[in-house]
């Protein structure tokens, strides 16, 4: 909203009535009690000193953050970042191709194809992860088939490959939905027009479909990257917990090490990473909408 429209909007509105403020109280209360306050406590705790029994003593120190530079922690942070990026990129590529496939089908088939994507998404996260243990594990169908060919004792679990597969499987739907949504709003005749004007398959995508679905792709990147960093079940069940992610680190610090301030500090770092990536995507979106106009002027 621009300043002028906002002014007009306010000018039209009368002073908020007491009744409408009362109606806002439940909303404000839940946001404050369930969102702002816990966040504030975690932020405060991240600067506190742990006592010997898992509690917190008052105090103000940056030591918790300084400790994060220790290779033990920084290795986990970097590994999480790397795995998050890898998972995001693979999800985007597969999600883009899948969305394009679905959008290219007749409208009455699209619903069915989407349902195939949604059904696993509705299934419990834990159940799906256990399913992968069965599939990839030593008694699973892959091991069975390989056994026929004389390759015995096959098992992908536990390994980082299994973690990547698990992450990919879990986050693919969240990558597909936003990309599908933005692709569906692209007029199909644009693709035909580009083909008619001489563009190859790759040209059609690079010059038309990809730029027009970029809001969905950036949204999908956000929805994939951020939650990947916080995942803690998959690395434990599929990776054997050898290479923890930030999510695992937080759980371990809170529950096993009983070091609340350290856990809080890692949580804050994760939060900052999320905000940073959101800001980055927001910037990219803003740029893609204004960039064209400016590049045009330089050409003309």
């Amino acid at each position: 909203m621009t300043a002028t429209t906002r002014a007009i909007h306010l000018g039209r509105q009368e002073k908020p009535k007491r009744g409408s403020l009362l109606l806002l109280i439940p909303g404000i209360a839940s946001v404050v009690l369930l969102g702002v306050l816990p966040l504030f406590i975690v932020a405060r705790n991240s600067f506190a000193v742990a006592d010997d029994y898992g509690g917190i003593t008052d105090g103000l120190t940056f030591e918790n953050y300084a400790k994060l530079l220790d290779p033990v922690y920084s290795k986990t942070l970097l590994f999480s970042l790397g795995l998050g990026l890898l998972n995001t990129v693979v999800c985007l590529v597969i999600g883009y191709l899948t969305s394009y496939y679905i959008v290219s089908r007749p409208t009455n088939r699209q619903g069915f194809l989407l349902l195939l994507v949604i059904i696993p998404f509705w299934t419990d996260f834990l159940v799906r992860t256990f399913a992968w243990i069965t599939i990839l594990g030593s008694g699973g169908p892959i091991a069975g088939i390989l056994g026929i060919f004389g390759i015995a004792g096959f098992s992908v679990i536990p390994s980082n490959l299994a973690v990547v597969l698990g992450l990919l499987y879990s986050f693919l739907p969240t990558a597909i939905f936003p990309i599908y949504a933005s692709m569906r709003s692209i007029d199909p005749s644009l693709k035909e027009a580009a083909t008619d004007l001489g563009a190859s398959w790759w040209g059609v995508h690079r010059r038309v479909i990809l730029p027009l679905s970029s809001p969905g792709i950036l949204g999908a990147a956000l929805l994939t990257f951020i939650p990947t960093m916080g995942v803690f079940v998959i690395p434990v069940l599929l990776g054997g917990g050898k290479d923890p992610l930030v999510g695992n680190l937080i759980v371990t610090l809170y529950t096993e090490f009983r070091n609340q301030p350290m856990g809080a500090a890692v949580s804050m770092v994760l939060l900052v990473l999320m905000l940073a990536s959101m800001a980055l995507v927001g910037l990219a979106l803003k740029r893609s909408s204004t960039k064209r106009a400016t590049t045009k002027k330089t050409e003309a």
Partner: peptide, 30 residues
């Protein structure tokens, strides 16, 4: 794409992310 003909679509099918100039220049660039 290799046929020496072009089509004018009923919906015009102009590329919304490109300017008028870029739209017209599309084929020459491709």
């Amino acid at each position: 794409r290799n046929r020496d003909l072009n089509m004018l679509f009923q919906s015009y099918a102009l590329f919304p992310h490109l300017t008028v100039f870029e739209n017209v220049a599309f084929e020459l660039r491709v």
